[in-house]
Design a protein around this nucleic acid. Structure first.
Length: 767
RNA sequence: GCCGGGAUGAUGGAAUGGUAGACAUACAGGACUUAAAAUCCUGAGAGGAAUUAAACCCUCGUGAGAGUUCGAGUCUCUCUCCCGGCACCA
């Protein structure tokens, strides 16, 4: 009984690959390029669980296969290491987040190295490295210079007890997760990026992308373009108007009242005329204090207050209609005001019912025409909002802006980048809502680059999304000190050919597309979209069907699986577990299936004979063909089962020809790189199997002279006949009629129709 | 509520409109073994008829119902349930 010693052999090959540098990527190559990219991980303290490597294994297989096909492959790895978890860890343990990040990265790398990936580690990047975030800051400056970064008072979640701003993840309902205090909204001056300027292009260019349709659809919904009309309603006895946006101007006659968002600016101007002023002010106050969650938690129950004394005029029929404020109308969408058509709109109807307002079912009119008649205009609205880009936090890229009392917000000169993140004594937010950086006067106080007078640095930092919005570009040229990526390298590598990951269907992919399009506009990149093809990845759940989490204690560490079964078995299992995009539960029992497969491959190398085993030819060629196609299509589960079918055939035959065996090892190599290289070496090869040439399927061996064709009578299979592959319909039908079982059935009725679909089916219809 | 994706044996799953359940797990029986593990062989959708026994044979079967088709897991319509995302977007 020969047992495969995965520990020894996997260690041997991991060392050999590292020493020989076969996975190092050349920048100047005549070969066609392939850029294969994983969504790079956030190096958390929990380490990797078995769900993380699934995507990395897929890209590893894909990139190894490309390399063997003669492509110049870029398959890099790096770390998205700024952000809240590292900062919280630092707060709790009183260590610098950099230290925590370093430790976590070391752990992640150790975990990854055991799985045998082909990453070119000389291109490793880390978003918290000043050499990296220098360019994140540089991109911000370009946005600022083009007027796409602006300051605005934006509300944040504010915990009055902790005196700190909170991210949505830090909330427990509308309470602070840490102390249980009710969270308020507080407006702070923040940097905002004008992503809405790119809404149309991001929508239109989805057609250029080879992405799963459901991801494109999610992006369309996120951008949320809708066509409609802007119409102004006069307010009686004033010279003011209320502007609304509606997608249904054709229902204008049915508008029986209007609603403003409580935060709408016009309400202030109406105040002197409002008879129930106190009631209105109270409602505004209450809805201002409500968190978004609270506003939604109330479900469909509508609230609101009429502005008594204010009447608007429906421009279609000149009738006076009442005006309300209600929080079901959002300040941030459209004009923050609506014309309510209770006959047509569900929400308006509910509100009308509650406030006993008339519901008028007026006939529809021509929307374009009516818009013109009442002096409105057709326009386009988006759900997409500009990107609030400031965080009142320590562990992020400093925003490279200097505030001068004379010159206002001034860009830090590019030669002074990076603006280094200084060390601080305490990572707690300042208590005023500002970031901890505000507590370091020697860092904050500086001079204005324009006038040289005293000025202060911006103390907000960037969100975690920033560093991941352009990292794929840095992989093309990771050590460039002069530019974020050189023109030459960018031209060669851009775009990413295959991008693989899960989870971030919308946010990350929208932000990265936005930045890429901006960089395209300023000439920093040469293609309009960053990710030509996207493959979306399903989660691996724990055996209990829940998400793997420390909380449930159901995390499975890849280290343990690799130690017990070996990396090759682990890799094969993660691919065999189900379709790549499916979410599936881990099953410790089932992994023995691929472990047995690896063992059987190992044992079979004793059965290799010099001569070709003709009986195996068609299976081998079929397997080469199927596995090649399946890798290209990310159907790794069926690729693995085809290799199992092939191995079963070898075993049944009791031997395998050397050439057949070589082909089998080569297609196995991307999946199980260690054992494949070991057995390849065993055949006398001196070069690694991973730089050998991918086999082409010999299709001629797939076509046999005869084939078994099923015979259907009235849609049911009643027999099978062996006929020549190139048989005519007449010959096929004759062969079928000659079959005794078929003849018996045909005798039972009157034949109405007979047909032969070549190579597929013979079909008779009886009456 | 809206949008997206699903539903196939005990389980994960396979199947360009053409022999449903490949491949694998679990299970049962057998071989090997003092024994167990490992390994190998065999079986298996449900039901029925028949037989010494087996092959062979028949009916039903891919969430439910209708439709298109010579033929539907696959296409169309209606419905049920599950998962994911967004949630009052005018």
């Amino acid at each position: 009984m020969i047992t495969y010693d995965h520990k020894k052999i996997e260690k041997k090959w991991q060392k050999k690959w590292g020493d020989s540098g076969i996975y190092k990527t050349a920048d100047n190559s005549n070969k066609p390029k392939t850029f294969v990219l994983d969504m790079f991980p956030y190096p958390s303290g929990e380490g990797l669980h078995v769900g993380h490597p699934r995507g990395y294994i897929a890209t590893d297989i894909y990139s190894r296969h490309c390399r063997m096909q003669g492509k110049n492959v870029l398959h890099p790895m790096g770390w998205d290491a700024f952000g809240l978890p590292a900062e919280n860890y630092a707060l709790k343990n009183k260590v610098h987040p950099r230290k925590a990040v370093e430790k976590n990265i070391a752990n992640f790398k150790s975990q990854l190295s055991k799985i045998g990936f082909d990453y070119d580690w000389s291109r490793e990047i880390n978003t918290t490295d000043p050499e990296y975030y220098k360019w994140t800051q540089w991109i911000f400056l370009q946005l600022f210079k083009k007027g796409l970064a602006y300051q605005s008072n934006e509300p944040i979640n504010w915990c009055p007890s902790c005196m700190t701003g909170l991210a949505n993840e830090d909330l427990d309902g509308d309470l602070c997760e840490r102390c249980g205090t009710k969270v308020e909204k507080k407006a702070l001056p923040q940097w905002v990026l004008k992503i809405t300027a790119y809404a149309d292009r991001m929508l239109d260019d989805l057609s250029l992308l080879n992405w799963p349709e459901h991801i494109k659809e999610a992006q369309r919904n996120w951008i949320g373009r809708s066509e409609g009309a802007e119409i102004e309603f006069e307010v009686s006895q004033t010279n003011l108007t209320i502007k609304v946006f509606t997608t249904r101007p054709d229902t204008l006659f049915g508008a029986t009242y209007m609603v403003l968002a409580p935060e709408h600016a016009l309400v202030r101007e109406f105040l002197s005329k409002i008879q129930n002023k106190n009631e209105v002010l109270r409602y505004i106050e209450v809805s201002r204090e409500k968190s978004d969650i609270e506003r939604n938690a109330e479900g469909k129950e509508k609230t609101g207050v009429e502005l008594k004394g204010i009447k608007a005029i429906n421009p279609a029929n000149k009738k006076e209609i009442p005006v309300f404020i209600a929080d079901y109308v959002l300040g941030g969408y459209g004009t923050g005001a609506i014309m309510a058509v209770p006959a047509h709109d569900e929400r308006d109807r509910e509100f009308a019912k509650k406030f006993d307002l008339p519901v008028k079912d007026e006939p529809f009119v021509d929307g374009k025409k009516i818009t013109e008649q009442v002096g409105g205009r057709m326009t386009t609205m988006y759900k997409l909002k500009d990107w609030v880009f400031s965080r009142q936090r320590y562990w992020g890229e400093p925003i490279p802006i200097i505030h001068c009392p004379k010159d206002g917000a001034v860009a830090v000169p590019e030669k002074d980048l990076p603006v280094l993140l200084p060390d601080v004594e305490a990572y707690e937010p300042s208590g005023t809502g500002e970031s901890p950086l505000a507590n370091i006067p020697e860092w904050v106080n500086t001079t204005c680059p324009t006038c040289g007078g005293p000025a202060k640095r911006e103390t907000n930092t960037m969100p975690q999304w920033a560093g991941s919005s352009w990292y794929y570009l840095r992989f093309m040229d990771p050590h460039n000190a002069e530019a974020l990526v050189s023109k030459e390298h960018e031209k060669y590598w851009d775009p990413v050919d295959v991008y693989v990951g899960g989870d971030h269907a919308v946010r990350h992919l929208i932000y990265a597309r936005f930045w890429h399009k901006f960089l395209y506009d300023i000439g920093a990149v040469s293609v309009p979209e960053p990710f030509a093809r996207l493959e979306f990845l399903g989660f691996i759940l724990a055996e209990d069907g829940r998400k793997m989490s420390k909380r449930y204690g159901n995390i499975i560490n890849p280290d343990d699986v690799v130690a017990q079964y070996g990396a090759d078995t682990f890799r094969l299992y993660e691919m065999f577990i189900g379709p790549f995009e499916n979410t599936t539960a881990w099953n410790t029992n089932a992994i023995v299936g691929t472990a047995r497969f690896v063992e059987r491959v190992w044992r079979l190398h004793e059965k290799v004979v010099d001569e070709q085993v003709l009986a195996l030819d068609s299976t081998v060629e079929q397997t080469v063909k199927k596995v090649s196609e399946d890798i290209e299509a990310f159907k790794f589960n069926t690729a693995v089962s085809q290799m199992m079918i092939c191995l079963n055939a070898f075993e049944k035959e009791g031997r395998v020809g050397r050439m057949q065996w070589e082909k089998f090892l080569q297609i196995l190599a991307p999946f199980a790189p260690h054992i494949a290289d070991e057995l390849w070496e065993d055949l006398g090869h001196t070069e690694s199997i991973h730089v050998s040439v991918w086999p082409l399927a010999d299709v001629s061996k797939l076509v046999s002279a005869t084939a078994t064709i099923a015979v259907q009578i009235n849609g049911k299979v009643r027999g099978r006949v062996e006929i020549a592959t190139n048989a005519s319909e007449t010959e096929a039908l004759a062969a079928a009629r000659a079959n005794p079982a078929v003849a018996l059935w045909l005798a039972k009725g009157k034949e109405l129709k007979a047909l032969y679909v070549p190579g597929r089916i013979i079909s008779f219809v009886l009456g």
